[in-house]
């Protein structure tokens, strides 16, 4: 190629491939996700080591997070079923939130990989599709386990005309969930990377702050929508 733009250094779409039998996986995604999971678990283990009635230190933070997640899931899923789904919603929120912020705050560039580069695990389409499919499975399971086959009444309510739309929704829900998260996080990382590459001083800072804001909002949106879908599935029509 005659034209070598500095942008090529960003190495988007390059992956560190690991071979697992005859399966290929993206090593950099797993590496950064392990860092994220490790950080989460470390925080949780440190914070819950000695739970007291008068909370102190990390317990305060954890209780705040717990309360936040409880309010979120209770509001979306409803009083009756939220307890079963709170851990799932909470894990989605925490994992995405820590991934996004980890991608923005941890100086991954200092670690050189043979191929590809480390970043937020949520900037990889595999991760977001995995999360979105889990949400789909979760709301199907929630509806079927709570209402049995009556769950499918939901597809013809309020009128059978809704049937095709509701079926299409089952496909658009995971699609929009995964692409929204993936697109936002990837775009944020690219904007910051490009700006930092062009003007490595001060100029990328507003974009970085905006990125932190977007990252937090995306985690909230994903968790809220997941909870909303589950809530929709377990919702009892009052006849």
């Amino acid at each position: 190629m005659p034209l070598t733009l500095p942008l090529a250094e960003l190495e988007v779409g390059k992956h560190l491939y690991w071979q697992l039998g005859n399966l290929k996986i993206h090593g950099q995604v797993f590496l950064s996700s392990w860092v994220v999971i490790g950080a989460l678990l470390a925080l949780v283990v440190v914070g819950t080591r000695k739970l007291e009635r008068d909370p102190r230190g990390t317990q305060n933070l954890l209780e705040f997070v717990w309360d936040y997640i409880r309010d979120l899931s209770r509001e979306q899923i409803g009083e009756k079923a939220y307890r079963d789904w709170m851990p799932f919603i909470g894990t989605l929120f925490l994992f995405i939130f820590v991934s996004n912020w980890g991608g923005a705050l941890v100086p991954w560039k200092l670690i050189h990989l043979p191929s590809g580069e480390l970043g937020a695990p949520t900037a990889d389409i595999n991760t977001t599709i995995a999360l979105a499919l889990l949400v789909s499975l979760a709301y199907f399971y929630a509806g079927l386990s709570r209402k049995g086959l009556r769950y499918f009444e939901y597809y013809v309510e309020p009128t059978p005309i809704m049937l095709p739309f509701k079926i299409v929704e089952d496909f658009t829900k995971p699609l929009s969930l995964s692409f929204r998260l993936f697109g936002n996080i990837l775009a944020d990382e690219l904007v910051v990377a490009v700006l930092a590459f062009l003007v490595p001083l001060i100029v990328p800072l507003p974009a970085m702050f905006l990125g932190l804001f977007t990252s937090a909002i995306q985690a909230l949106i994903f968790a809220t929508l997941a909870a909303y879908y589950i809530g929709e599935a377990v919702h009892e029509e009052h006849h």
Binding site: K24, V29, F30, L40, T91, I125, I129, L131
Partner: peptide, 19 residues
């Protein structure tokens, strides 16, 4: 960018375990 492979199911398993 849209390179789907075994990362997807493994990540799903990982998230379920994390849950």
């Amino acid at each position: 960018l849209f390179d789907l492979d075994a990362t997807l199911p493994l990540m799903a398993v990982q998230v379920v375990l994390l849950t």
